[in-house]
């Protein structure tokens, strides 16, 4: 409706335009506390975030800051104790196919082959077989695992399994893709390859992604925007748009701009007083 021409635009422009366009996820004053007999443990104190259409947003924070809990609430797998989470004007209170998720643990169904795993959600949606096959073929191509389509998960490496998990989530064409430290268990070489693949997938299809990580470099490389979460109390500390070139390769990690972003977020995480301007 605004006559978008994404390819020709710089990323910064598209972020601004998206502001005008559509808010995909709106989280307001979200709170999550676990109450046991003796005391209350606060996982999330008070978090408000907004994710726009076609954004790739990372949430970084120290372990135990509640970032995974936040994602699970967005997925509908956990219930908040206060505040709201809205997806496209609809309150999130149940898990559903409109929010695909990739986990840190390997969650492929071990009794299904690679292609059957990608088929799983399509079968539930009752997509006609021929159309479903085309979707599966397409995503096998995207994750470069077409030769392994008949393999069982146990025959794949960790990185390959996570690629299939990503394809399985994307094949369902969710409104938003939730990723909970999906590369956290991989070795650094594989991790870099996966980051590049993920960035390329995003550059082509522009899925809306919420990505949880504690790896600052990973967050800067992948994202259009990064939320920094603090530990105790767990609140959003900063909201940092990443203005780096649209087409990114791994070499970008060595540029001064990239390193500047990294340092800035690191400083924020380590609670240092930094006189950097923080947009929010």
């Amino acid at each position: 409706m605004f006559g978008r021409k994404k390819q020709a635009q710089t990323e910064a422009d598209s972020v601004i335009e998206a502001h005008v366009a559509n808010s995909k996820i709106l989280v307001s004053n979200l709170r999550k506390a676990y109450v046991s007999k003796k005391r209350e443990t606060v996982a999330i104190a008070d978090v408000s975030i907004e994710i726009l259409d076609n954004e790739f947003v990372s949430i970084v924070g120290p372990s135990g800051c509640g970032k995974s809990t936040l994602l699970r609430i967005l997925a509908g797998l956990d219930e908040a104790t206060g505040g709201t989470a809205i997806l496209d004007d609809k309150l999130i209170d149940d898990p559903g196919a409109d929010r695909g998720m990739v986990f840190q643990t390997y969650t492929l169904f071990p009794w299904l082959s690679v292609e059957e795993n990608i088929h799983f959600g399509l079968k539930i949606k009752k997509i006609p077989k021929k159309q479903a096959d085309e979707i599966v073929d397409h995503y096998l191509e995207v994750i470069k695992l077409t030769p392994f389509r008949k393999s069982y998960p146990k025959e794949l490496s960790g990185g390959m399994q996570q690629r299939v998990a990503i394809a399985r989530a994307l094949a369902n064409s969710p409104k938003v893709l939730l990723m909970d430290e999906p590369f956290g268990a991989l070795d650094s070489q594989t991790k870099s390859e996966m980051q590049l693949l993920m960035r390329q997938i995003w550059q082509v299809d522009k899925p809306t992604v919420v990505f949880i990580t504690h790896d600052i470099e990973e967050a800067v490389f992948l994202s259009t925007r990064v939320y920094v979460m603090s530990g105790q109390p767990s609140v959003i500390k900063a909201n940092i748009p990443i203005y780096l070139s649209y087409k990114r390769s791994l070499e970008i990690k060595d540029t001064t701009e990239f390193i500047a972003y990294r340092h800035r977020i690191t400083a924020l995480l380590h609670d240092k007083e930094v006189d950097v301007e923080v947009e929010s």
Partner: peptide
Amino acid sequence: LLSAAYTLG
């Protein structure tokens, strides 16, 4: 594994 199934619909 169950969570993954839920998020797949």
